[in-house]
Design a protein around this nucleic acid. Structure first.
Length: 260
DNA sequence: ATGACGGTGTGGCACCGA
């Protein structure tokens, strides 16, 4: 059983690539971020034809998240309960697996623009609210997967230029402390459970040949709860879609669990 | 220090992303 996350930067533009990718990578679950479309424009039919149920939470122009899954989902929750937010950033759902219930949380974390900005303050508030939601979900469910575009490079090795970018957005101590705070709730960064190549990134700037020069960041993550850890078999970044003609700036991260 | 690339909106560019 595989679980993947992918920031598609407009599902309108990227739907053909998502369908192609799913055909080649028939994962059980795919979390999408940055749909940039409203729910009435969500391509339920095309995804159903590909064998996926879908639960979406969209908005116009910005943000928007969705969960796709082969088994049906239930108990779908949109955004962070108790945190008033005009931006559509989180969708959670429960899946029935061979292990029993798995609670999925798919999130598009706030970018934050620059330390000291209003957007950065919003990022920190949002991170606090998300942490509370994950804490509650972990209390209610043994098997929890927190996936998405975290907009945080957790460690220096997750950045192409950790010295030059020290203290800048995605690299600040505050953001990294929040990432560590999520781990401290009882989660593991599944990518780091396995040996990985140096300079493994999930996002590259469209400009200045960022991908060709591998000037990227690892900001897309799949975190799993303690109870899932023994079942994790692999986690890898699939760079192939970044080589497509009209690529997203992010590429999928894929977790393999030893479940049917 | 800035912009570079790409998506969206009701545009002739600005805003946002990371």
């Amino acid at each position: 059983m595989k679980i993947a996350t992918w920031n598609v930067n407009s599902l309108n533009v990227r739907l053909p690539q998502v369908l192609d990718w799913l055909a080649a990578n028939p994962v059980a679950v795919l979390g999408l971020q940055e749909l940039k479309l409203t729910d009435d424009k969500f391509p339920h039919m095309a995804l159903e034809a590909a064998g996926y149920h879908s639960a979406c939470f969209g908005q116009k122009t910005y943000n928007g998240v969705a969960l796709l899954s082969r088994p049906p989902m239930r108990d779908i929750v949109r955004n962070l309960p108790g945190f008033a937010d005009e931006q559509a950033r989180v969708i959670s759902a429960t899946l029935e697996t061979a292990l029993g219930e798995v609670r999925l949380i798919n999130a598009y974390f706030v970018n934050g623009q620059a330390p000291g900005s209003d957007k950065f303050a919003y990022k920190l508030q949002w991170l606090q609210a998300l942490t509370q939601w994950v804490r509650e979900q972990l209390a209610a469910h043994q098997h929890v997967v927190l996936m998405g575009d975290f907009n945080v490079a957790p460690e220096d090795r997750d950045s192409y230029d950790p010295e030059g970018l020290r203290g800048s957005i995605h690299h600040t101590p505050e953001e990294r402390a929040h990432f560590q705070g999520l781990l401290d709730l009882g989660l593991h960064d599944s990518f780091r459970l396995f040996e990985q190549a140096d300079n493994s990134f999930s996002w590259w700037d469209y400009r200045m040949l960022g991908f060709q020069k591998n000037r990227g960041l690892r900001i897309d993550h799949i975190l799993i709860s303690h109870a899932l850890r023994p079942h994790a078999q692999a986690c890898h970044i699939d760079r192939a879609p970044r080589k497509n003609k009209q690529p997203s700036d992010h590429t999928p991260v894929v977790l393999t669990l030893n479940l049917p």
